[in-house]
Nucleic acid binder design. Structure first.
Length: 589
RNA sequence: GGUCCCGUAGUUCAAUGGAUAGAACGGAUGUUUCCUAAACAUUAAAUGCAGGUUCGAUUCCUGCCGGGACCA
């Protein structure tokens, strides 16, 4: 049990034995003591003052003395300022703490691991990945790793939206404008190649609409009558009828896209235990709709369309099957939920999907619950905010998207220039250099996107490149590399003897001890930014320590040993923290 | 029309109802005979507006103003 839990439990026990009143450990608020006051941890007394009918001073004294007796050797002193009871923790406690900590036991495994699915990425096959997808990919991967490092069994999955009208748009544009060209001919990445035809479709479509409007047609009708739009719709119909030529073209173009995606996924580190394709799953939901009709979860209107009434749950009525019998988006998701559950039988299923779909997922979960699908209570929508440009939302049709591959390449380039200008790794081989540039460039990008609370929308300014200084990935990578550089010189076999910790040494010990709680909180709230902020604070604290105290030239041998141990533990904690963010830390940079 | 989310230094982000609202970038000023200056130190700078609940509100409630998303 960690110190903070002990303090809470002990406070609860002491209040029980002093006053006979039951306060649960969870009700006890323990904070780190503010630097301007004496002490390490603070218990906020105000919460109990009224219930216990004591003044904060009297309560503080009685509780303080009882705690002193309850945790001998750990608590050495206490003081009371207003309603705050500050405890000083013994030097011996912290010394023993870091003595027994090692890179192998930084994180205790949780007692009751669960099997959890994380679905993320979810690309469309009509265009390449953009900045928004990067946030999704990094978040999904990180959440999965955070849950995994706790000891859970995690399955990463991906659903590819590989069918529908948007795919047909790229297909028809290719037929019309490509003259049979392929990605190989044009030396282009397949996803970009196909994406270009999606853009070409929209350009042609706009031109045709404008022409029709000029000829006297209203805008609304022109949008429906534009020949290229009609062509796309006919193509969709043919696809659904299983027309051979259409299916062949569809498979061919999708295969180009998958090759492109694979390159990008490999580069950014996304991986999946299983990839689902909507073209394989979209029919399944229909059967569940029939079952739902039989169970009277759904009802049919006169025109034949099928609905669910969610007004009792504070939502609207929602269509689940069109009058022509075709499935809607949510029907497919019901089918997919069932399919995943059958295959993996997980306790929980986390969907990493943008917050524009909040309503959709509320409905999905409710429907699954009402259909009594297994584990539908475990459905959780990890809703993240959009990445916006200073000018507003990114729109692929208007060419205002920040392309994922371009951005990744740019970041790697900047890290190359920066590294070269510093000239610290001149002895690296070309392949080591290239790996380092990747590590740093991607580290900067991933950290930038993960350091913000996922729920909040974030703004990305393409005019200003992502920083390599301050609250950034490279800052932490640098701190790690510097520690490793020291450890290469001092060696890492050490023997610790008792010594009095200096304030910065103690501060490091306390910060290191917070790591498990941070991981647990990040897992509970599904928020990697907690880990990002923690690793930054730890690195910053170590840098302050580094500037203040020498490790290899410490005054005494026992100090040197102690500081080497702090270095080992800090480096290992930074490495683990960054790992769950998908960021590698170099030995040298 | 209905539902939901968001307004914190110049900018991008923090702050389970707790002490004097933290960081980073940008601005100003310093630090390299000594373990990597992608670093460290000092400094100026903010809770949209008006009420309410509370010992205590950036946080909870109401209204307003401003931005965004979704449903039909």
């Amino acid at each position: 049990m960690n110190l903070i839990s002990n303090l809470k439990q002990s406070t609860s026990n002491c209040i029980q034995s002093l006053y006979g009143i039951n306060i649960t450990p969870e009700q006890v608020l323990v904070n780190a003591t503010k630097p301007e006051f004496e002490g390490d941890y603070t218990i906020v007394l105000f919460a109990f003052v009224k219930q216990l009918g004591k003044s904060p001073e009297v309560l503080g004294n009685e509780l303080g003395n009882a705690m002193l007796a309850a945790m001998p050797g750990t608590i050495t002193n206490f003081n009371i300022v207003k309603g705050f009871l500050n405890f000083t923790i013994s030097n011996q406690y912290w010394f023993d703490y870091i003595k027994h900590l090692s890179p192998e036991n930084l994180l205790p495994k949780i007692e009751s691991p669960r099997k959890i699915m994380v679905e993320y990425s979810s690309p469309n096959t009509n265009k390449p990945l953009h900045l928004g997808h990067l946030r999704n990919n990094f978040l999904g991967w990180s959440i999965a790793e955070i849950l995994k490092i706790q000891g859970n069994d995690v399955v990463k999955t991906c659903i590819v939206n590989d069918r529908g009208i948007h795919i047909c748009k790229s297909m028809i544009a290719w037929q019309l404008f490509a003259n049979g060209a392929t990605p190989e001919d044009t030396n282009q990445k397949g996803d970009h190649f196909v994406g270009d035809y999606y853009v070409k479709f929209n350009d042609a479509y706009k031109a045709q609409v404008a022409e029709l409007v000029a000829g006297g047609m209203t805008h609304d009708i022109a949008e429906k009558e534009a020949p290229i739009q009609k062509g796309a719709q006919e193509m969709l119909l043919k696809w659904e009828q299983g027309d051979d030529a259409t299916l062949e073209l569809w498979k061919r173009m999708n295969s180009w896209v998958y090759a492109g995606f694979e390159t990008t996924y490999k580069k950014i580190g996304s991986d999946f235990a299983k990839t689902y394709f909507e073209s394989n799953t979209y029919l399944l939901g229909k059967e569940l709709v029939n079952q739902g009709l039989a169970k009277k979860v759904f009802y049919q209107k006169e025109d034949g369309s099928v609905w669910i009434d969610l007004t009792a749950d504070g939502l609207d009525e929602k269509i689940v099957r069109r009058k022509d019998g075709t499935s809607v988006y949510i029907t497919q998701d019901i089918g997919l939920a069932e399919m995943k559950q059958e295959e993996f039988n997980t306790d929980a299923s986390i969907y990493v999907v943008g917050d524009e779909q909040n309503y959709h997922f509320k409905v999905l979960k409710l429907i699954c619950q009402k259909l009594q699908l297994p584990a539908s209570d475990g459905i959780f929508h990890l809703s993240y905010g959009m990445v916006e440009l200073p000018t507003g939302k990114m729109k692929s049709r208007e060419g205002t998207v920040v392309d994922a591959d371009d951005l990744v390449d740019e970041m790697i380039n900047i890290s190359k220039e920066k590294t070269e200008s510093l000239g610290k790794v001149n002895e690296f081989t070309p392949s080591q250099l290239s790996e380092l540039y990747n590590t740093i460039g991607l580290g900067a990008l991933k950290f930038f996107l993960l350091r913000v609370d996922p729920k909040k929308k974030m703004i990305f300014n393409p005019e200003e490149s992502i920083d390599f200084h301050g609250f950034t990935g490279p800052f932490i990578q640098y701190t790690h590399a510097r520690i490793k550089s020291i450890l290469r010189k001092t060696g890492t076999s050490i023997s610790l003897t008792n010594s009095e910790l200096l304030p910065l040494e103690k501060a490091l010990a306390i910060e290191l001890s917070n790591f498990p709680a941070v991981i647990n909180e990040a897992a509970e709230t599904l928020d990697p930014s907690k880990v990002a902020i923690y690793t930054f604070n730890l690195a910053k604290l170590f840098n302050t320590f580094y500037a203040e105290h020498s490790i290899s030239n410490a005054d005494t041998e026992e100090k040197k040993q102690l500081r080497i141990q702090l270095g080992i533990l800090t480096a290992a904690t930074l490495q683990k923290g960054m790992h769950v963010l998908g960021i590698a830390v170099p030995e040298q940079m």
